[in-house]
Amino acid sequence: MKLVIAAGPPASGKTSILFKTIKYLKGFNAKIAVAKLDCLTSDDERVYEALNIPVITGLSENLCPDHFLAINIIEIFNWAKKSGADYLIVETAGLCNRCAPFIDRALNICLIDCLSSIKVPKKLGPIVTTSDIILISKVDMVSQAEREVFVYNLIQLNPTAQILEVNGLSGFGSQRVGNIILNSPSYDSIDGDILRHSMPSATCSYCVGEIRIGGMYQQGIINKMDFSKGSDFSYV
C-alpha cells in the first residue's frame, strides 16, 4: 500500500486539493482510503464519503495531533489495508508548527497557503524542512512576483522538496499531485519506520489538564522564558 501524509495549517486548503486529487486518482481505478486527523471536530469525513471511499476520522482532543498520529499510524495503516485500499492518504492538522507528522518512508506532503506566510515560511519549521512535496495553495490570489520570492525562501529551507502550485477550488495542480502519488513507493507494513522529526517532550502539568497558573502548579519539564534578552527600553 502507498502511504501519503498530508499536513498543513488549518484552512490552508488541504481537503479541497486532496478531494480533487483523489477524484483524479479514481480515474486510474486507484483504491484509496482516507484518514482525517483533527483536534476537536471535523466535518471533512462527509466530504470524502461523497467519493465512495473508506474514510475514518480521528480526533486528538487533549493531545497534540502530531503525537496522536505517531501513536495511531500503524493502526490506521492496518485499517486501510483491511478495507482493501492500495492507497492510504492521511490528512492531518498542523497545530503549533513545532513538529511535523511525517514518517520516513511515506510520501510526505506539506501544504502552505501563500496568503498567510509568504515572507517567512521559516515559521512553519519541520513541516517544511522534512517534507517531500510542498504544495502552495491559493496561488490565484497572490502576485507571481511574490510567489517567486516565497518559493525562493522555501528552497532555502528545503532544497530537495518538489514544489508545486495548486488551487483547491479549480483543482489546478491536482493532476500533478496525483501523478506523484501514483509513482510513489508501496509498502506492506510500516512497522519499524521512524518519524522524520522528533516531537517535543510535552510533559509539563498543563499537558495533563492543569488549569491554574503559578509556579506551585507547575511540574515536569518547565521551560521558563529568559527576560534578560528583551529590549533596553523601560518605563522605570
Binding site: L115, I118, V139, D140, M141, V142, S143, Q144, A145, E146
Partner: peptide, 9 residues
Amino acid sequence: HLSQNMHFI
C-alpha cells in the same frame, strides 16, 4: 500566471 484576483500582500 497573471490573474484578476491577484494582489500584492
